[in-house]
Write a protein that binds this DNA or RNA. Structure first.
Lengths: 315, 315
DNA sequence: CAAGAAATTGAAAAAATTATCAAACAAAAT
DNA sequence: ATTTTGTTTGATAATTTTTTCAATTTCTTG
């Protein structure tokens, strides 16, 4: 048995360390090329050779792969480790930043929403001077006491970091009057921004759930009653201020008009990246994917497992 | 620049951790297959991915490769580390044992010489029960006070470990009388052994130098005068009790008749493995290779460097 | 701001690797 | 001893990867 390991070591050294090809090794060994290929497979299998990817952020390759394949995503990144909500979200944002840095380039339009994921991500972005990058605020303002979670400020800060321009929506996230709504969306700057939001290349967003802790409610834009009502009508999450059910069908919010791009805008982007952490987001995340709003997920291990579990149950 | 590293990490994770092929990655990235191939190259180059071969004996892949290619060897193994003679030889023997264990199989004839390398190697061999393995003593006996360096005992012990048979030469390494020589080589058992020695599959041997410490002289088979004379006639080393010059031409030893297989026997074996350590062996090693007596070297770093240096000088 | 140099890219071709399959071999059971 | 069963092996085919090369883009430098 030791003979076998010695052989695996020998072949692996020749292949990986000395860089010979399999047919040269076959000649040395006096065997055939396919046999060398099999030996190298075994060496990997048995842990004689190990391939390490040096990344500052450790990911779970199995989960990433399953998530991507099972949900039909363009890409899925699952950060390893068992973190609490805050820490998990931070790690996801680091991974999202890593991903974003490889996608962003000159002449791209970046659509953003709001929330803590976006804030953390925005902080992480390395300043760089791109040409003709436009950051578009896709949802109206969330006038909480904490302006740095707000799309308005985030778009400004992100544009600054990327050396680009920004398109803002100087309006609240929801209005209750249809007249006001009509006026606002016709307002030239807002109209222009919303139009741009329909043609973004990269969208970065958190994924809204409908638990009682949702920022939307805390900020006073949604009452507990509204929330219960939405849940009663099947809603499980929201994006761009639009709630949707588990299949991604929009559930209208009665008596509120959202000053934001329609959900359709999410489908137009080449990259629509959802960043989210912790199990309680699972339903919303799965629905966002089922609706085709999100084609790329950056999540933590817990959430990934929960989402896959839910997806399984659906059958 | 960080963008590039992030991209290399991303591609490497997809390729090595998730096992996607390059064209799947190209689709995700929105680029071409060759670009992915180039990125993976870069990732290796930049140390983003590292391939580790877990071997109990660390080798120097660069030196191994250079030695093999520059000297046209079947295989070359250079053990890493800066050891003194004793320790270096031990490490070489461990590596040689590793190599040997991958080569030896049923129905093979193994030719051995004598010396400390062979003794250490013999101690390391794992007992195993091969079928029809024959261990052939290729050189007569070296009657020093230390019988365990002697081919006679080594052949016996090695055969025992491999579960095979042995063929011995019950005669001294050299005799001074031609009559005695003729009688001995015609002696049935010796004749049979010498005949077998001409058709070995694997030869294991140290490589003899002509420094004043050579065991041959210490054992009294060679006087200092003989040695100086040989050196004067161009000899730089010896194998199977036959001295040779730097190009591998045999230098006859005047007044001595060797009871051993001819140098030609070395060329017949598929594997003729020379085990040697320390710089002072360099000339002898290079000559043994130049003469085509050795097709595989197992040496330490110091010796490898020195041999390569000498080989370079020859041009 | 244009012109040339250098680097980057993808299409096509070449090379290398992996998968498939049937034959040879070995082990086990009759 | 002989058949059966399960491995191992290498030839062939299919796939994947790498190289080559021409075209394009990007970066310098006058």
């Amino acid at each position: 048995m030791d003979k076998k390991v010695d052989l695996l070591v020998r072949v692996s050294e020749l292949y990986y360390e000395q860089g010979l090809n399999q047919s040269a090794i076959a000649d040395i060994l006096g065997t055939s090329r396919p046999t060398v290929s099999r030996l190298l497979d075994e060496a990997k299998e048995d842990g004689v050779v190990e391939v390490i990817v040096h990344s500052p952020i450790k990911k779970d390759p199995q989960l990433s792969h399953r998530l991507r394949v099972n949900l039909g995503l363009r890409e899925a990144i699952v950060v390893s480790g068992n973190y609490d909500y805050e820490k998990g979200l931070s790690r996801c944002c680091e991974a999202a930043n890593q991903l974003f840095s490889t996608i962003i380039e000159n002449n791209k339009t970046v659509g953003i929403t709001w929330g803590s994921a976006l804030k953390i991500l925005c902080d992480l972005i390395e300043p760089k001077d791109y040409y003709n990058v436009n950051v578009v605020q896709m949802v109206g303002c969330l006038a909480t006491g904490n302006p740095n979670l707000d799309g308005l400020e985030l778009a400004f800060r992100m544009a600054k970091k990327l050396g680009g321009t920004y398109s803002n929506i100087y309006a609240p996230i929801y209005v209750e009057s249809e007249v006001v709504y009509s006026y606002l969306v016709a307002e030239p700057q807002i109209e222009a921004t919303l139009k741009r939001a329909m043609h973004t290349d990269i969208i970065l967003t958190g994924i809204g759930s409908l638990d009682s802790n949702t920022t939307l409610q805390k900020a006073g834009y949604l009452t507990d009653r509204d929330r219960i009502d939405l849940i009663g009508r099947g809603a499980v999450g929201h994006l761009l201020a639009h709630p949707f059910d588990k299949d991604g069908n929009e559930i209208p919010l009665i008596g509120r008009f959202a000053i934001s791009a329609p959900l359709e805008a999410m489908r137009a982007a080449e990259w629509s990246i959802g960043i989210s952490a912790s199990e309680f987001k699972a339903e919303a995340v799965l629905a966002a994917v089922r609706g085709g709003f999100i084609n790329t997920l950056v999540v933590d291990q817990k959430l990934a497992n929960k989402v896959l579990e839910l997806a399984q149950e659906e059958e």
